[in-house]
């Protein structure tokens, strides 16, 4: 597979959220605004790239039987780094993402890529794969976050587009997350079917 294809597959064709339906918890939980979605997406991208890198480096050293716990320790290490850096430099984002930062550990996308891709491929391909899937995830979260923020409060990245009085508050609250994601996936399904 050429590297460019490897990089771009995460955006539409194998988008982790819209097509593979992985990592639903942070997708729904952190997309109240576009900024939060983007922040969560980038944090996950960092963890994904770093863990892919390390897993691909140590893939020949770990015995097959304990590979999953070993991967989890690697992932948890980078999640802790993200947690501490974010708390120090972006305290307000850390506050609003809250519980979902430590929960990157149990994001099935990260473990899934480590197991399915990085443990079988060389370092360069693994990094590109991590970057592609991670940015695809960030892209999906930003789209969902923008849709919810715009419909709910009339803002986009905190810039007012129309008056908040016309916003549908439900889209910022919990039910709106499910409904908005449902409609976005329906649209993506339709587009994918047309292309095929």
């Amino acid at each position: 597979m050429n590297q460019w294809k490897n990089f771009t597959k995460g955006f539409i064709k194998e988008n982790p959220v819209f097509v593979l339906l992985l990592g639903m918890c942070p997708t729904l939980g952190t997309t109240g605004t576009a900024i939060n979605g983007l922040g969560m997406g980038l944090a996950t991208t960092f963890v994904l790239v770093m863990s892919n890198l390390v897993v691909s480096l140590i893939k020949n050293m770990i015995p097959d039987k304990v590979r999953i716990p070993a991967f989890i320790v690697v992932i948890a290490t980078f999640v802790t780094i993200v947690e501490m850096v974010m708390q120090a430099y972006l305290p307000s984002l850390f506050e609003s993402l809250g519980l979902f930062i430590p929960l990157i550990v149990v994001n099935c996308i990260v473990l899934g890529r480590a197991e399915a891709f990085a443990s079988k491929n060389n370092i360069k391909t693994s990094i590109i794969d991590g970057l592609g899937i991670g940015l695809g995830f960030a892209f999906a979260l930003t789209i969902l976050g923008s849709a919810r923020e715009l419909l709910g409060s009339g803002k986009l990245f905190n810039i007012t587009i129309y008056s908040e009085d016309y916003g549908m508050l439900i889209f910022i609250l919990a039910p709106g997350a499910f409904i908005a994601l449902g409609y976005i996936i329906a649209v993506i399904n339709r587009l994918n079917k047309k292309n095929a």
Binding site: A174, P175, F178, I179, G182, Y183, A186, R190
Partner: peptide, 17 residues
């Protein structure tokens, strides 16, 4: 277009409501 996951998500939304 809504068959499968999309309709499941939308009904989850209504349940959440």
């Amino acid at each position: 277009g809504l068959k499968g996951v999309p309709i499941a998500l939308i009904s989850a939304g209504i349940l959440a409501m």
